[in-house]
Write a protein that binds this DNA or RNA. Structure first.
Lengths: 268, 268
DNA sequence: CGGGCTGTGAAAATCCTGTAAACGCAGGCG
DNA sequence: CGCCTGCGTTTACAGGATTTTCACAGCCCG
């Protein structure tokens, strides 16, 4: 759960430590020495804003007020030097979510930003990302299902989660251990073939609905990569000659064409 | 905007002032000298809980943890005497929304409780949505009841709430945990089958009044989806023809049709 | 060529859901 | 006050669906 935070402050010591810790935690941090117009805050798509009103040129109350009105869903934490109870109460009533005073441990500041973001997020009913489209495929998190031109792939829950995971990392090779860890939620036992089995099921269902596309590629000795690409040979016109398959009602041969293997570290 | 708050503390001086101010603000305040079991907290339908872990007999962390898990929507504010940064960080990470230290002005405590409640409340959908019509069904929030061509389904309160919830999310798959959380108001215990049981009751009553429609669909391993659709085979006009699928291979499947497992047994 | 590594199919184990019935509780009523 | 009734909760079980496991075959790369 990554947090996008902007900090408006000029306490370099505090900022330095905060930046370091934020990076370690995987947060996306944006710093500013002066007030950021609410318009720009919107564009930054933040989870939270940490601000010391002392550095604001204009009237701090006014600024806080405008931020609260413009971005009701933004987590807002104020971090001041000295402050009175009356000031804090005023701020909190105004719409500030938390008010901390310096000297303040960066770790606590982060924990409070986290708490505020968590709380804000909980109200939101849509933690998932919107539908993803890849090739002919449409992945809909709200349905726990994937579709090709409206037809469901009939994925089970695990299959869907696996597909969603690899699709989100489109183009990137994911190791089995990583996949297992993220889909199953715990470490993969040595020799477990579950990932392979589910990849196979996925490929089957994908090919059934979208035969002309290849989605999941094997990287020998590494893992799998999701990357939709039209299958070679079947495309816009220009059929050279008889395709490989011999005539016959039921070609038993499963060409296993899905196995496009790339050298481990060769980029196409 | 009235707030329902419970306070677990025994600092009489603090409590007295707090009670007076809370009353003046029109809050509903409930006091306790010791820990309140999460079960009872549920029944109180609180907006927020203010607690001093010092008065907890058992392990404070354990209690806070259980409260957070059981009531994810409850605003939780801790108010301690002395505390370390590490303790505060631990609490906030655990799920506590705000952590203040005594001596603490009651007004600030209230302001923080307010801020926490405000955050919690945000994002909640409008409490009163207009009547919903779906298929032959008409859901009337003002009556806490649903009707089919004027005839009541005789839903109980829970049944109605469940129906309203899934109907508002029409077309979207809702997980059991989500449903439980939103209808019952607290976290679903592992292995609880209440949602299934109520879904069954709903389906029974729906089918009784509207036999030719199918409303609630099961998504195996995930949850349920509300989507009214005429039941296959029986509808307007004369179904002289075979309702069975045509001989052609795999006609384009209905868009919304994803592994529907709705039992076809008509118990009666 | 051989030692991994991966694809495949099916059996075995596990999990999930529908269903019914028992249970407990609170309010209404005689 | 005790009984009855409606409602919500819990439990048990059976039938399926899904997941895991296994053995084997084929493939890749050194």
């Amino acid at each position: 759960m990554t947090i996008r935070l902007a900090v408006i402050d000029n306490d370099t010591g505090f900022l330095t430590v905060l930046a370091k810790r934020a990076e370690a935690a995987g947060w996306e941090l944006r710093q500013s020495g002066g007030s950021i117009p609410p318009r720009d805050l919107v564009a930054m798509k933040l989870n939270a804003l940490l601000v010391d009103p002392a550095v604001l040129a204009e009237d701090g109350w006014d600024y806080l007020n405008r931020v609260c009105e413009t971005l009701p869903d933004l987590g807002l934490v104020v971090c001041t030097g000295r402050s009175t109870v009356a000031q804090r109460v005023r701020g909190l009533r105004l719409g500030v979510d938390d008010w901390i005073t310096k000297p303040c441990h960066p770790e606590e500041a982060m924990a409070r930003v986290e708490a505020v973001s968590r709380r804000r997020r909980r109200g939101r009913s849509e933690p998932d990302s919107g539908p993803v489209v890849a090739g002919e495929l449409e992945i809909r998190p709200d349905q726990f299902q994937a579709f090709v031109s409206g037809a469901s792939l009939d994925l089970t829950r695990r299959e869907f989660e696996l597909l969603q995971l690899v699709a989100e990392a489109r183009g990137q090779v994911l190791e089995r251990e990583t996949i297992y860890q993220r889909v199953w939620g715990y470490a993969m036992a040595h020799g477990d073939r579950s990932v392979d089995v589910f990849i196979r099921k996925l490929r089957q269902k994908l090919e059934k609905r979208s035969p002309d596309w290849s989605y999941i590629h094997t990287h020998f000795g590494v893992g799998y990569r999701f990357d939709p690409e039209p299958v070679a040979g079947v495309d816009v016109g220009a059929p050279l000659r008889e395709p490989v398959l011999p005539p016959g009602p039921e070609p038993v041969v499963e060409p296993a064409a899905s196995q496009v293997v790339h050298s481990s570290f060769t980029a196409e």
